[in-house]
Structures are given as C-alpha cells and as structure tokens.
Design a protein around this nucleic acid. Structure first.
Lengths: 138, 138
DNA sequence: TTGCGTGCAAAGGTTTTGCATGGCA
DNA sequence: TGCCATGCAAAACCTTTGCACGCAA
C-alpha cells in the first residue's frame, strides 16, 4: 500500500503530531487522545487507516509489546530511510527503546541470509530483553 | 504467580495436551479446539487462566507474532531439547514460523550481553523477514 | 467529476472478569 | 470445611469494516 494519494487536513495534522514524537513510541490511542485534548475531531478509523498506510510505506514502525495490549508505533522520520540497517532493542521492563548499529549485527544479517536463506527485515524486527539498568534490579 | 495449588482434571488434561505439542507453538484457541474435538468440555476462561499460570511459573513461554492476532505459547517442558535458546523467524510473506538454533545466534546473545549490556529474551523475540521460498518469488 | 478519505457506529476477535457452583486437600 | 478452580456469559479492549458523505485533485 502507498501513502495516501490525497493531502488532507487530517493527514497534515497527523504528520505534525508524528514529528513531535521525536522517535518515541506511541499507540493509536495516544494519537486519539492527543487530538481530543486539542479539541480536534479526527475519527478513530481515520487514525488507524492512516497509521496503517504510514507503516506500509515505511514512515512508521509498528511493533508489539506485552500482553494483548495496543500496538506501538514509532516515527523514524524521513532521514531514517537513508540510515544503515540498525536494530531496535526494547527493554521489557522499563519500556525504553534503544537503537543499535554494529558490525556483529551486520554479520547476523549475512549469516541468516547465507545459512538460513532468510532475508531479515531489520526495520520491523525488535529484539526484546532487559536493558542494563533493569537487568540489575533484582 | 505460582502453579495451581490444586491438581484438577482440567489441569491434568491440559498438561497432557501441552506435552503432545512437542515444542511447537500454539494459541489459546488451539487448546480450546483440541478439547472441543475430543468432546471434552473445558471453559475458555479456564484455559486462559491456566495458561497464564504456566507462563508465570516458566513452564510455558508466551510471545506475540503479528498484528492483533492471538498470543502464541510454547511448551518448553522438562525435556531440555526445547529448552535451549532458539530463535523465531517469521516470514512476512507466507506467514510461516521457523524455529532456528545455531551457534551464531548464541554468539549474538553473548555479544548483546557483553557489549550492549542487554539480556536478550530469545523466546519473545521474533525475527521478521522473508523465507527461502518467498524471497525467490519476485 | 472522480474516487479516495473521513466519520460514525457496528462488528470482529482475543482476552478478562463477575459470580455462582464444583471439587481438591 | 476452607479455598481454589471452573464454567458460563457478559464485558473489556483494541482494531477493522460498512456505508454514506465530504473533499482533494
């Protein structure tokens, strides 16, 4: 699916919001609440539909955290399209998202491709675990 | 949370089913359907409640694949064959899920731990991409 | 004018919860 | 007997869908 063909008021407002998130994750409901606070009426269906399009065209990243809770989105921005492949580490405890880029992971991509015939999608993949701070808590 | 204090008929039946899954993943609905086929009546609530307890006590692992679909469970069992860290590869095209286990990935775990201070949760983490069959389609 | 985007409400699927009953220890 | 487990149905929750209307190009 492509990004919306039409430039609508709603898409404009949504993009402005996305840019304000500064790479932090948010849910569809966060978006809804944001516009509710701003007293701007945008239907939930529109939010879900636009987010889905933005995920499809790579502007947003979508991933899932715990339980059966809401999906998380992250705006990587336009610049990110030109970045080297990098990974996301998500801490299961504090929820922080870390971006890492290193040779070891490039090797992993090559390894998966050569030995397991698998083309890794680094944008979508999120590595879950415990970060430095949280691994030392208990 | 601890495993059930009481040994009930339902828990017994459930454990038997889990052992039959041989480390393959399944959903709560798979369990429900299994007992439906066997003409054994076990309420959905019971299934969810027992699965949750088994996750809490480490007997089951729980992870999430796609979208807003059902959670996946995996029985690691007493048999250590399935206890070893392994990864999930999910093909974004055909939807197949592959379980892989290899030295390269063990190294990745060590690398993340040592260099990035990150304890990877291999069960929860799902690597997305294209499998052998699907990468050759276009 | 064309057809995509929107809003509303209803439906859909998965999981949780309230409450009375059943059953283990 | 005391509590936990169960079953049922309803509710909760997030997300998708149908449909008529609005609006960009």
């Amino acid at each position: 699916m492509q990004r919306s063909a039409y430039k609508t008021r709603q898409l404009d407002l949504l993009m402005t919001y996305l840019e304000s998130t500064q790479g932090q994750h948010f849910t569809a409901d966060d978006v809804r609440k944001h516009f509710e606070e701003e007293k701007i009426n945008i239907g939930v269906a529109t939010i879900y539909r636009q987010l889905e399009k933005l995920v499809a065209d790579g502007t947003l990243q979508k991933y899932f955290i715990d339980d059966h809770s809401a999906a998380c989105f992250e705006y990587s921005g336009k610049d990110c399209a030109h970045c080297k492949p990098h990974f996301h580490l998500k801490c299961e405890v504090c929820g922080n998202l870390f971006h890492i880029e290193c040779e070891e992971l490039d090797q992993l991509i090559a390894h998966l491709s050569e030995k397991h015939d698998f083309d890794l999608n680094t944008v979508r993949t999120v590595l879950y675990g415990k970060c430095k701070k949280c691994r030392n808590l208990n």
